[in-house]
Design a protein around this nucleic acid. Structure first.
Lengths: 146, 146
DNA sequence: CCTTGACCTGAAGTTAGGTTTAGGTTCTAC
DNA sequence: GTAGAACCTAAACCTAACTTCAGGTCAAGG
């Protein structure tokens, strides 16, 4: 069993954040001994899940809902399964978006490298929108979702 | 040349957002005719870049800085190049993080599918941390950054 | 003339996810 | 028995990125 200070150090999260999560209901059933929070392995695992779900863009209230389902036992497996299925689809779409964003940024890197060499953007502008060098054209097209 | 209403429709952005961007200095040198904003192709291209940079997680003030460099002409190519280089590195790290997050979510999908079949998590818990089915173990390990 | 639609402004309001503050308890060591 | 460390609470504060509001200008159509 761990105190809030120990958990804070283990996860490199401010104590205030852990208390905030608790207040928001992210640790239903968290044990307390004379008012002091006691985190056990269940809570550590939950905290790992919280960090993952936060990274996936979910809001605290949705994470709270999930934790409540966990608290309710095996009757909510189906709900929890759907929850992750849905989030998986969202994340896969976001991944694609992110890859397009990266293509745009890589294209811009090439663009300014070239602009530095030429001391001008004119030469590049003449190649737009479909006469760029092959590799660069691929980035450019990918960025536009083509 | 386009009015704010036309640009709003073209980009599916609220008019208030475009005005906010302007107020924050994201369109330096935006033309006005008797007080009314007139967006031309330069601003449309800038808006595309703004959306990309926002997706990449940059703050308005950083985007503003970039737009000011654009306004200053060819003397700032090197700065703009570095700007995108830096952002590229950030995004590539974020992409990896995101892929780990997706692995975790895919693992959880499998987990609850299995839990539903077994009507219990016990069987799965016994396989942790390294006796999961091969494909699932790969997801699990990847999620932990291994 | 006057109404309608599209634009303008500055200022206040909103939201999420925390963080900070002020004041209080509890345990351990000297 | 008192000092310090580590915990507790409620409530106020913070920030970014918008959004809403209240009030005003201006051009075109009936």
């Amino acid at each position: 069993m761990y105190t809030i200070g120990q958990v804070s150090r283990m996860f490199r999260l401010p104590i205030s954040t852990l208390r905030y999560y608790d207040k928001e209901g992210l640790f239903p059933g968290l044990q307390r001994i004379s008012g002091v929070r006691k985190f056990n392995d269940t809570e550590l695992e939950r905290l790992r899940v919280i960090e993952c779900l936060k990274r996936s863009g979910l809001e605290i209230k949705d994470i709270k809902q999930f934790m409540q389902w966990c608290e309710q036992g095996s009757s909510t497996y189906a709900l929890r399964y759907e929850f992750f299925q849905k989030q998986q689809k969202i994340m896969e779409a976001e991944l694609e978006q992110m890859q397009r964003t990266i293509s745009m940024i890589r294209y811009k890197c090439w663009y300014y490298e070239q602009a530095m060499k030429d001391s001008s953007e004119d030469h590049i502008q003449d190649m737009l929108p479909d006469k760029l060098p092959k590799q660069v054209q691929a980035l450019y097209d990918h960025a536009q979702g083509k």
